[in-house]
Amino acid sequence: MKPCIASFGILLLVVLSVLNTTGQTHGTLKFTLIHTANGKPVELNTTTYNTPNGEEYTIKKLRYYFSNFKFPGNPTLEDADNYQLIDQARSTSFSIPVLPGKYTHIEWLLGIDSLRHCSGAQEGALDPMNDMFWTWNTGYVVFKLDGTSTSSTADRNRIEHHIGGFRFGQNVSTPLSFELPNDRPLEITAGKTTEITLHLNLDRYWKSKETILIARESVCTVPDALARKIASNFPYLFEIEDIKVHEN
């Protein structure tokens, strides 16, 4: 059936060329997250750390959302790329397409915008199956830190920090903003991958703007004043460790 094969071939070419025209104009920005506590890399369950406040703890879960990436003059992110879940147990890196350019200012949200909190059933990073979703009071946990501590007075010495809240007066999602020097901007090149290494220092989670004591504040699972107090340390958690362009 030669004509059939021929027409299928033509169709395939058409489909491929359509696919090919998308994506070519973008570069890739790969985020790699390094998590440390007490100067040591974060390992779940096995390692004991000390907070800067002198309290011992282990970590069972460490998850948080990044969203609403903003690169000046680059409004073209696909919806799915604009919401990322970082999970120490599953994935601590992700890539997003970014228009080529030299960026000296980048920002995004640690958390999720309020509009998306009110938009019904979501998929991908925002799928309620990711165990970052409150069912009884709609909303996402935007930062989750579970563990144990001898300082905790809660059941089984647990630490359960499920930090969320998006309504007026309850919002914990925090813009993270980074200025880069003019001579060393974030450079995105079409067809290439630029990798940005971000360091999350959990010491600052326990002590930066506010001091969070496990003995006093081991459990936070509702969008209350304690959640906002903990979130007031969010702007201090991350710093850029390295930026490099891969020749791929």
Partner: peptide
């Protein structure tokens, strides 16, 4: 507490 009909059933 549930702000959209789509997410109601998760509860």
């Amino acid at each position: 507490g549930v702000n959209h009909i789509e997410v109601q059933a998760v509860s």
